[in-house]
């Protein structure tokens, strides 16, 4: 793999065994043969509805969900790890290199710990500092980068607003000096006015600290503004993956197009123009045959019901998994 790729997943599958019956063992595949390559220093966006497997993929790359098939390689300047077999001391080392920022800043922070203790906890658990003094120093350093001042460190989380709390969770995730950070719906619980502030902070931290982000979100407009590359998932599969500009200029998969048109427009005269998607995402236990999206796809034909499309790259780095994307580009305007 090339030098500028930090994480490379190849046909990665996360399966959970379901109750065993005598006749057969069934496995729920939350993520099914997904291949992604995340460049160093990039902001990689992962989009999809609930149940599409985006969180599970993020967790698998953090080695927090079991990788049952396929491979994922992490490589920075110092180490190279195969995530499917990682354990012991190497896994411990990986924990400080890869971190997670959670969705809900109200649930993620212990109400009984001061902000200083919350941020210092990863350092203490991982034994990354030699003395309390050093711990304090690192906490103050990262807190300042996340725009928290000394006064804030002495207080408890209840005294803070949503935006401030999310800055505390960010500081906690970054204090161990990770290279790779998964931000799982990190702005979804925040008000729009604060959301922009947290997104700008993440961008700032990325360039200051040389971080690589995987940004998981269901909000395409947020992804459009922050990410360099966007991958769209549906029912455990990758259906489209492209550099942000290309994806937003001309989405190729009918699902991506539907996600676009579902965003409520700010123009009151746009009402009812959106192409609405019928129904809901099917249960992963009861997956339709053929293309997983055909049950809701406005453009499905018989072939889609029988044959599952493969993710193809037509040569321009804009991958799509749809039988009909070429003809749809010509016949159905985005």
């Amino acid at each position: 793999m090339s030098d500028d790729i930090l994480i490379s997943a190849d046909r990665l599958t996360v399966g959970y065994p379901l109750g065993n019956s005598i006749l057969r063992k069934s496995v729920l595949k939350a993520v099914n043969e997904v291949s992604v390559h995340i460049e160093r220093g990039s902001f990689f966006g992962l989009v999809g509805e609930s149940g599409s497997g985006k969180t599970t993929l993020g967790r698998a790359l953090l080695k927090a969900a079991p990788i049952t098939e396929g491979r994922a390689i992490y490589r920075d300047d110092e180490v190279e790890y195969d995530l499917s077999t990682l354990d012991g001391a190497e896994l411990k080392d990986y924990r400080k290199r890869a971190q997670l920022i959670f969705q809900d800043p109200y649930a993620a922070l212990s109400p009984r710990m001061t902000v200083r203790d919350i941020i210092a906890e990863p350092l203490e658990v991982m034994g990354l500092t030699a003395s309390r003094q050093e711990t304090d120093e690192r906490v103050r350093e990262i807190a300042a980068k996340c725009r928290l001042n000394l006064e804030h460190l002495r207080r408890f989380p209840h005294a803070f607003s949503g935006g401030q709390r999310q800055r505390i969770s960010i500081a906690r995730a970054l204090v161990s000096g990770p290279k790779f950070v998964v931000a799982d719906e990190s702005v979804a619980a925040l008000d729009v006015s604060i959301q922009a502030d947290v997104l700008n902070l993440l961008k700032q931290l990325q360039s200051d600290l040389g971080l690589t982000f995987m940004f998981i979100s269901h909000d395409l407009s947020v992804v459009a503004h922050t990410c360099d590359h966007v991958a769209v998932m549906y029912l455990g599969r990758l259906v489209e993956s492209a550099p942000t500009r290309k994806l937003f200029a001309m989405p190729r998969h009918p699902y991506t197009r539907a996600l676009f048109s579902a965003i409520p427009s700010l123009d009151p005269d746009d009402r009812g123009k959106a192409q609405k998607l019928e129904g809901e995402i099917p249960s992963p236990l009861n997956q339709p045959p053929g293309c997983k999206f055909h049950t809701r796809c406005p453009n499905a034909i018989d072939r889609c019901k029988r044959e599952e499309p493969r993710l193809e790259d037509p040569g321009d780095g804009h991958e799509v998994s749809c039988h009909r994307w070429r003809e749809l580009l010509e016949t159905v305007p985005a």
């Binding site: 607003s161 729009v192 965003i263």
Partner: peptide, 24 residues
């Protein structure tokens, strides 16, 4: 105005996101 400007817009990806400064 601040609330409207803070919304990420799909028709203009280059415009920076402008939060309403500070907290309520």
């Amino acid at each position: 105005r601040g609330l409207i400007q803070a919304l990420p817009r799909l028709d203009d990806l280059d415009s920076p996101l402008t939060p309403v400064p500070g907290d309520i």
